[in-house]
Design a protein around this nucleic acid. Sequence first.
DNA 1: TTGAAAGCGGTACCAC
DNA 2: GTGGTACCGCTTTCAA
Lengths: 340, 340
Amino acid sequence: MTNKSLKISDIAKKLNISSSTISRALTNPNLVAKKTRKFILKEVNKLKYIPNIHARNLRTKSSKTILFLVRDIDNQFYFEVFRGIEKVAKKSGYSVLMGSTDNDLKKEIDFFNMVKSNQVDGMILMTGRLPSRKIFSLNELKQMPIILSLEDIPEVNFNSLTIDNFQAAKEATNYLIKLGHEKIAHITSPLSETRIGILRRDGYRDALKKSGIKINSKFEYIGDYTVESGAAACKKLFKSANKPTAIFCSNDEMAYGAINQLRRMKINVPNKVSVIGFDDLPMSKSFYPPLSTIYQPRFLIGEKSMELLFEKIKIQKNKIDNIKLKTKLIIRDSSAKRIK
Amino acid sequence: MTNKSLKISDIAKKLNISSSTISRALTNPNLVAKKTRKFILKEVNKLKYIPNIHARNLRTKSSKTILFLVRDIDNQFYFEVFRGIEKVAKKSGYSVLMGSTDNDLKKEIDFFNMVKSNQVDGMILMTGRLPSRKIFSLNELKQMPIILSLEDIPEVNFNSLTIDNFQAAKEATNYLIKLGHEKIAHITSPLSETRIGILRRDGYRDALKKSGIKINSKFEYIGDYTVESGAAACKKLFKSANKPTAIFCSNDEMAYGAINQLRRMKINVPNKVSVIGFDDLPMSKSFYPPLSTIYQPRFLIGEKSMELLFEKIKIQKNKIDNIKLKTKLIIRDSSAKRIK
DNA sequence: TTGAAAGCGGTACCAC
DNA sequence: GTGGTACCGCTTTCAA
């Protein structure tokens, strides 16, 4: 671990050229005569020089790094989003880091401080919440190079990218109705923390209402996005005398849990009960039965979020247009016509 | 995005105390008189001062950050490992970043350069390979604060932590034999890239041999860790006249694929065919049927890897003891007695 | 226990 | 197009 690491001044001395020129040759090649540049780059490569990033960042007050902050890093959903972000970021020479709050308030504040202290140049937030106003004022937050992605926080009128959750849920429910189902249950997202759950539930309710189906609160089970809650929901729903013939779940994982539980109870999916999810996780197409679900354009979500962030970094304020993306209903084998 | 960010000298001026003392109060409190310290910290908190990490890192030549490098960041396997690493790292005030090579050589070299240039203080490698000797000499690599985790590269005698893959595979196969199976197929890891696949296959073969079962190369299918390859394997295995009654898969995902394919072919698991995986991913216990598999102590793997790394950072050389961890066979519902 | 000052390794301004 | 030099913000000697 001997760290006699090479610096610009070493190369400068060796080549009898000023540090400034070396630096320029490395970061602004077109400011340097072609001949000099070639001469320098040749030596730099030969010596395998690596710039000290801390020195550079200190001087430029920029790290060319952006942070993608999520609630739980192990959720399969995020990776394609990450790749979308990375693709756009890379084009401008930025790297992307992924951070996870794990519902830890302290961690969350640390990440925001990374933005505040310029340790990263910006942040894409998918956690659906902001730190307390006691830590950062709303005004301060709005000034920061941050984009809200997927989970909007409308009260604060922050730059954001969302999908149309209401419409997507409505479409899924309408599809079930078209299949002949009337007793349609819904396993929701956790409803208190984020708005997404409410929007999807309202989409579900709206579809029922518009089709003249009475909303039955017994058919709404408040889930928490886990496989286990999907299973628990089914246990409860099918204990009752009035059993649903279809279930719309607010994410795929709960749909997995629901289907597994139905199987344990010897209730066939989709013949007896249709199940439909939300997200279209990678697993869903190889699940058994392959899961009907709402596809969210994850890669695009990442790309567009990053574009928004770049825009915000550039214009340094909060006045850019927000974006709302469309989803798509994917029909596979977990849903079928109601057999009367 | 106005960045009038506060610095130590600002506080120094305001408090009429030298910057040195402020810095000490923040990083070496016991070098500062209690009274002064309290006075300083009170102001620091009030002003919400955040140290400039680039300046600090530049000065100390250490970032208190370590890198966890994997091949594909979206593999569920890694997260608990990550948490184990993080737990140990945190105790010493270190943060952990996770990086993914995505099989991109350039990316890989970049990550190694992060270590070389002190951008991170060390690295835990789970990619099972080192960059070409043309980029880094073997000697240079060995000097670097890097630990090989899970995927050893024995030719280079690098510090490493592994699990006993041979033994684990043998145990899984023996268990199937004990259930009365003799026609046991094996879906392997990709065999050319890493040693793990070979070790597991050899463990499988050894179990058969020791039980007097003839090794049948037709029963060995070379997989690639994906769900799809598990399904493809089954398609092929069950087209033949000589069908296996049990399958040992080199990871859980291929087991998922195998089970789904068997179901499509109306072959009941576990009544007709037993399937056993390797890894015990979070999904496996809620899979249908719940998957029998080899549990790898992921959290412990993370903790121990980080401890090894700290040791290596401390003693600055490659002479620490390597570690080999034990696995555990988890029996669930995807395996059963052979029905004759 | 505290302060002054040097310096980490780059970049960017200014002059030529 | 190139060089000299100040400076980014922190830590760490050294001296008091």
